[in-house]
Design a protein around this nucleic acid. Structure first.
Ligand SMILES: [Mn+2]
Ligand SMILES: [Mn+2]
Ligand SMILES: [Zn+2]
Ligand SMILES: [Zn+2]
Lengths: 149, 149
DNA sequence: TTTTTATCAAGAACTATTCTAAATAATATT
DNA sequence: AATATTATTTAGAATAGTTCTTGATAAAAA
């Protein structure tokens, strides 16, 4: 079952004496129930529909706690606000420069993302990030439609 | 001849009615004469040694103009301040989490960096960025030395 | 020269994010 | 249970990198 379809309100262990509070749960649920990559402010807006009393500071706190606990991912693209992602599987991101959408890209089976670069010998690799920028299929289609008018 | 060893004060065309002013030239020279990836503030400090009257705002303006003209690269890693790079050849970046150094990584010949991901069909790819995080060779060595004490 | 356009510089403004401090709530200890 | 300890939430202040504004300066064009 894909992560984003997991039953909501599932109790998760955060470890390190951290509690899964109602605020953290609702932030977590919002991320797990969406495939897009909302910013903290967008998460805040979505969370408010379920818990109108929550503050933006708490959303930032919760996102950080969840990210440090490793149950959500913080996605940083360029100079833009951080986005958050509930997809824990290793994956890359496609960033559409036309509509600003961020979408997950699967990795090809058996191909390490690091295999295209000459890793510095003696270095200890912790993480490899691949980011693709361009025009998403939908925007390419819209563009072409415009051409034929 | 590698880009960073080019003769300094080389006159460059910026295109689009833009002038290579003394300020832009000195900012450009600073980037071309270093292999590290300085932030705008670090560039500012280095530039001041040659031109003490320059302002930080102008350094930001110059860096932006040079980057838009495509003769330097803006490098954005995580939430940190932007860094700037005079290496125009396609390359990736290694970011040491211990000493914060950013170094260039060459791409393997004949291997597209995009080959490790399942590109969305119909998308128009403009740029693929690969970022490696971990511990650089020097920091790995320092760490090991500490172990044997 | 006169006019136009580009650039510079200083500081204000902006924005995403973090910090502070007080209130609240959960947990542990007695 | 009562108390003490610790974690969490919250609003707002503070921070930091960057961008914007505006008037001065300089270069280019006419
Ligand atoms: Mn993702
Ligand atoms: Mn570089
Ligand atoms: Zn798009
Ligand atoms: Zn290092």
């Amino acid at each position: 079952m894909p992560a984003h379809k997991k039953k909501l309100s599932e109790k998760i262990d955060l470890g390190g004496g951290h509690r899964m509070t109602p605020q953290r749960q609702v932030v977590y649920d919002v991320l797990m129930s969406s495939r897009d990559h909302p910013t903290a402010t967008e998460v805040f807006i979505r969370v408010q529909e379920k818990m109108s009393s929550i503050s933006l500071a708490t959303v930032y706190n919760c996102l950080d706690t969840l990210a440090v606990a490793g149950i959500v991912k913080q996605v940083n693209l360029d100079r833009e606000p951080s986005r958050y992602c509930g997809n824990l599987a290793p994956h890359a991101h496609f960033h559409c420069e036309t509509c600003a959408t961020v979408m997950d890209i699967d990795l090809k089976d058996g191909v390490e993302p690091s295999s295209s670069v000459k890793l510095p010998r003696g270095a200890k690799i912790q993480k490899v990030e691949v980011e693709v920028r361009g025009k998403c299929p939908e925007c390419v289609r819209t563009e072409k439609k415009k051409d034929t008018l």
